[in-house]
Nucleic acid binder design. Structure first.
Lengths: 227, 227
DNA sequence: ATAATACCTGAACATGCGTTCGATGGCAAG
DNA sequence: CTTGCCATCGAACGCATGTTCAGGTATTAT
């Protein structure tokens, strides 16, 4: 029988092993043992599996914790990604008060409908996990912030903001919640809509203005089967 | 010494074990052994760890694969989440041709700068992984689609669309790329901006119109330290 | 007091699992 | 042909790891 031998790089069998490790990890949430890899990749001997794993490690496709049962993981593109489950506290709309994180409350839930899972590498690393929360936009009052009905806005709890940051504010003057870019000027605050064609709102510094949080991220799920 | 005994539910020690498992899994990408849990949670006997793990399993906080080394995983809110790495093919801007998926090309990369990691539960489940790609919006030509400079749009490869779906189209007539809601009418196509205040574009059916993909998702990372 | 329950100990046991090694055969270079 | 590398096999070895058990000590209920 002819054996295709690729001097360098990855062969067909390496590929199969790699894919099996990923598939197994996705399904069982822990890595496979050497013997399990052998059985599922038609390799009769554990030493051969070990042989290939060594090569995969040298080539940088996996990492191994020697001596540790099931101590291996894929690296690079197919590596598992660290995610953070961010609770969706409630709706945000012009006329509604802004939901806030209550101290001492555990917002963890296994109900996916009330949370969004976000890869950590998409978030600013300096943010504390516990300070992050999400709101679901109701209505079209935020269109001037380029934010649509149904969008999810990921927020970071904050009571003040730097110039240029987008914040969620409650305006007691108008009894209204809004998302705007925040600028502190001489004797007033300027709340600038994201849409450049819209005019800013000015709030005098002696008027009340409650900053509830900074906008970290906006996620919009577009219906693929809209009406 | 006083022992706090909570009859039902989870105790302090259960909590500590749970947190350790998560922390360990994040760091090493595989679950800890019983003995490792014991060492790090100040439990001297493996049987006691086993004792607590049994309780955690009964309470539904973890799942165990008996007889299998490191065969345990947290369930519910803290469970690891399945993600998909979607390649960012390139920019999308009004005057630029739209990047497309080339058949037979492997877009996997370990360079996070050229991909976005998205939790699978945020994506329409019916989409084939391989048909998904992402584009980075350059310029403000998409503001009428509520999409800003710097946004990431996740696309699904498609050559045609249903009414009401948001599509990326190339208009040879104007030599322009755009994102619009798509509607097929009697003898023309209507391309409707997401912003309700803007007027639609009409394309006669005998004119060329290239649908490059459907918009699945929009991700906007808001700078927390903008200028 | 007695019984019952929850929590803990230490050790032994069985086996899952990574490691190592000698042996075999195909293929290419010298 | 001989040498040497690569891929493979099977088996044995030994530590890592989950399991079990007989026995403790509190705290609480009867």
């Amino acid at each position: 029988m002819m054996m295709v031998r690729k001097s360098k790089g990855i062969g067909e069998r390496h590929q199969k092993i790699l894919e099996f490790i990923q598939k197994y990890q996705r399904e069982y949430k822990h890595p496979p043992s050497i013997r399990e890899i052998g059985e599922n990749c038609d390799i009769s001997s554990t030493s051969v599996v070990n042989y290939y794993l060594d090569q995969l490690e040298k080539s940088g496709y996996i990492e191994r914790d020697r001596k540790i049962s099931r101590g291996l993981r894929v690296t690079g593109a197919n590596a598992s990604v660290d995610t953070l489950r961010i609770p969706i506290l409630g709706p945000i709309a012009a006329g509604l008060p802004l939901p806030e994180l209550q101290p001492g409350v555990n917002y963890l839930t296994d109900n996916e409908a009330h949370a969004v899972d976000v890869a950590r590498n998409l978030l600013p690393s300096k943010d504390k996990d516990a300070d992050l929360y999400a709101l679901e936009v109701k209505g079209e009052s935020m269109i001037d912030a380029m934010i649509n009905d149904g969008d999810i806005v990921v927020m970071k709890r904050a009571a003040e903001a730097r110039n240029g940051e987008m914040v969620a504010v409650w305006l007691p003057r108008d009894n209204e919640a809004t998302l705007k870019y925040f600028f502190k000027e001489k004797d007033r605050y300027r709340l600038q809509p994201a849409n450049p064609t819209m005019k800013p709102i000015y709030i005098n510094k002696d008027e009340p203005l409650e900053i509830k949080g900074k906008v970290v991220m906006v996620i919009r799920k577009v219906e693929t089967y809209a009406a």
